[in-house]
Design a protein around this nucleic acid. Structure first.
Length: 254
DNA sequence: AAAGATCTCAACCGCAACGGC
DNA sequence: TGCCGTTGCGGTTGAGATCTT
């Protein structure tokens, strides 16, 4: 697919802001401007660059296309694996997911998910409905990690689709993640990112037992991810994510 | 070869969060 | 405390590419 094939309608007459596909000349102007002035102050970039584009368009073009080290082409197996796992953990928080995948942008990840993974997931869901023993656990909702968790929750009956079940050494536990049923900490994106750093980068952590998760109706247990723990046996997702995650996010060390 | 259907992904839109005043 | 400007994010759109009939 060509870089400049997209020709959405644009209106570039007079002082109106231009929309639609970027031209090589516009790319050059934006690139030169950012190389000269650096990222940031996006509201000034169009003026400095001499572009009749809005700041949003400039920022998006830079972040998704012009920024150095952006990886193009098909996603590799390990990248897909990572996306699947991170999405189970974080939901549709594409920027956080992309932050763990070098060279990929949030838009890339989101597009890949929507075009390749979600359709497959939907198909699996439909097939699972035909099986009477289908697991009913649903992925963690983004709201678990929301910064606006209600600190004084209303009393309401837990609903099954808000239950997350995990198995630990063969013992299954279920906890409700609907609003008000978890004493979740107020979580900032920085905390979540720090948590992910700990999760993926700290190889000295030790964990006992093996944790199995069943999410999106698809149980998985101890599947390997490239990053291995020090003992070489437990994979990253053998972590007791429920307890560990909340303890970590609620700790004073952040 | 042509037409229609489907897929891909760059770009846009709306909104929430945040900081300064 | 509220307003306003800016930033960043996720959802959606739609043009062009590719596939199917």
């Amino acid at each position: 697919m060509g870089e400049y094939r997209k020709m959405r309608p644009s209106s570039s007459t007079g002082l109106r802001l231009k929309k639609g596909a970027w031209t090589p000349k516009e790319d050059m102007l934006l690139r030169n401007c950012i190389q000269k002035h650096g990222e940031g102050e996006w509201h000034l970039i169009p003026l400095k660059a001499g572009l009749s584009r809005c700041r949003k368009s400039c920022r998006l073009r830079w972040l998704n296309y012009l920024r150095p080290n952006i990886k193009k082409g098909d996603f590799e197996e390990d990248e897909i694996d990572l996306i699947l796992r991170l999405h189970k953990l974080l939901g549709n928080r594409w920027s956080l997911i992309a932050g763990r995948i070098p060279g990929r942008t949030a838009n890339d990840v989101k597009n890949y998910w929507n075009t390749h993974i979600r359709p497959r997931s939907n198909k699996q869901d439909n097939e699972a409905k035909d099986i009477t023993t289908a697991v009913t656990v649903i992925k963690p909702q983004p709201r678990i990690l929301s910064k606006t968790v209600n600190s004084n929750p209303p009393i309401a009956a837990p609903q099954d689709y808000n239950l997350v079940r995990s198995t630990h050494d063969g013992v299954e536990t279920a906890f409700d993640i609907s609003s008000g049923y978890i004493s979740s900490p107020i979580v900032s994106d920085a905390k979540i990112d720090k948590y992910l750093v700990e999760l993926f980068d700290n190889e000295d952590k030790e964990f006992d037992g093996e944790i199995g998760w069943s999410l999106d109706g698809c149980p998985f247990q101890g599947e390997a991810l490239d990053a291995e723990q020090e003992d070489g046996e437990s994979s990253v997702f053998d972590l007791p994510i429920d307890e560990f995650m909340w303890d970590f996010l609620n700790s004073d060390q952040l």
